[in-house]
């Protein structure tokens, strides 16, 4: 993550350099400032962030015998944990649930939020600040405090242990996030572009679809990632509002793992599951990170 972030920053700097003649000098200054202290700091943060991941990866590759040997490099690396995971049937269905529920929530949240955020960024309507404050309040609301009532309502309405039963609360918490992120991006897009499109004969919707949306893509991807990770990582709703593999997602399912014998902890399999659920996130960030290019709007207006 840390290295990719540095890459992204340089892309931004390049775009700037193309723009103003003195930008390259400024960039050189900044790089000159990155002395040994900067390198050591970066390495320290990387080690701090990545060590637990490395440890989990190592655990997932260890056999039952040496799981507690305390070594970072497994002495006899094995893929047994992964094999057991997929053979047991405790994992595949939750994985499908996780992917499905997260993707559906992400798509819904981004579509709804982009319309809402566009209106918020462009229009002045009564109750606008109330809406934004309300959205923020929901995002800040402690989810655990609604779990009890939700459990009862879901059981009586038949939403308990279903996909929509998880998608709904996820949307409730993801939408404010997405709206705030997207509104910030929409505000960055010069209003003139939209007016130019209207003068060029576009309807407001055409202006939105052909001009504003393509320019807001980095924002759309950013909020998509945020929403997806939020859903993917959720444990609370999944453990409370599901009872079977019907809708239970991976984080909750992991808690129910059983080992080959009742007297052994399924540590290796939990570690393997953790590694597997991390992979989609990494892939997603890597894929979308290339889209989140700074300065996409460069050249629109003289700035």
């Amino acid at each position: 993550m840390t290295t990719t972030a540095i890459g992204g920053e340089q892309v931004g700097a390049d775009a700037q350099a193309a723009h103003s003649t003195w930008a390259p000098t400024r960039r050189r200054h900044r790089e000159a400032g990155r002395g040994p202290a900067w390198t050591i700091g970066a390495l320290a943060i990387m080690a701090y962030a990545l060590f637990p991941v490395a440890w989990i990866a190592s655990l997932s590759l260890k056999g039952e015998g040496d799981i507690a040997d305390g070594k970072l490099i497994p002495t006899k690396p094995t893929l047994d944990n992964y094999r057991t995971l997929f053979d047991s049937g405790e994992f595949v269905r939750p994985l499908i649930n996780s992917i499905g529920i997260s993707l559906i929530t992400t798509v819904l949240a981004v579509v709804i939020a982009s319309f809402a955020a566009y209106a918020i960024a462009r229009l002045d309507f009564p109750g606008k600040s109330l809406l934004l404050t309300g959205a923020l309040a929901i995002a800040m609301f402690p989810p655990v405090s609604i779990i009890g009532p939700l459990f009862n309502i879901w059981r009586s309405t038949g939403l308990y242990d279903t996909w929509p039963g998880l998608i709904l609360p996820f949307l409730t918490f993801a939408l404010p996030l997405a709206i705030w992120t997207l509104a910030a991006f929409f505000r960055e897009i010069p209003f003139d572009l939209e007016q130019a499109a209207q003068v060029d004969g576009a309807t407001p919707f055409q202006a939105f679809r052909k001009v504003i949306l393509p320019l807001a893509l980095p924002g759309v991807f950013t909020s998509a990632i945020i929403v997806f990770i939020f859903c993917w990582n959720d444990f609370l709703f999944s453990i409370s509002l599901t009872s079977t593999d019907e809708a239970r997602t991976v984080p909750a399912a992991t808690a129910f793992f059983t080992a080959s014998s009742n007297f052994i902890n399924p540590t290796g399999q939990i570690a393997a599951a953790a590694i597997i659920v991390t992979v989609p996130i990494i892939i997603m960030v890597l894929v979308f990170q290339r889209r989140i290019v700074a300065g996409l709007t460069a050249g629109a207006v003289k700035g």
Partner: peptide, 20 residues
């Protein structure tokens, strides 16, 4: 009438080109 129905062309001060 909406701008799109007036059939006029405008050049903006900051050009307002579509950057994408």
């Amino acid at each position: 009438r909406a701008p799109k129905d007036r059939d006029l062309a405008m050049v903006f001060q900051n050009y307002a080109l579509y950057p994408h």
